[in-house]
Amino acid sequence: MTTRRRKQNKKWMLLKLGLFIYLIAGVFTIIWFRTEVVSLEYELGELNRQKTGFIREQRLIMAERASFYSVKNIEETAVKVLGMSPPERKNIYYVERTEGAVPYKVSLNKP
């Protein structure tokens, strides 16, 4: 076998080896990507479940808030807990702010 032939064979071998490594690396990269995607999907699924749980909790809190804010509850709290009483209409004065340096006009008329 001539030296030239041997060199050619060596080149060919190196090329084959390179191709083989490239192929293996490619396969592993694809598998790695796929694994990463799947694990991200798991993670996303878990986050979604957490999100659903938080949304559920948020809805419950909002429902509770809506119940607390009912006019009935507010009146009961104001009267029974805070000792307030509904204002008598005759005691309600509407303050109208007039233009310029004139006194406020206070009347029973709504501004």
Binding site: P86, P87, R89, K90, I92, Y93, Y94, V95, A101, V102, P103, Y104, K105, V106, S107, L108, N109, K110
Partner: peptide, 24 residues
């Protein structure tokens, strides 16, 4: 109606002589 008017801030029409001026 009385409660609704208080809730809706609808003023009393009568007793307009109760109009007051306040020092500004």
């Amino acid at each position: 109606v009385e409660n609704a008017f208080a809730y809706l801030n609808i003023p009393m029409e009568k007793n307009e002589n109760h109009i007051m001026l306040v020092d500004n």
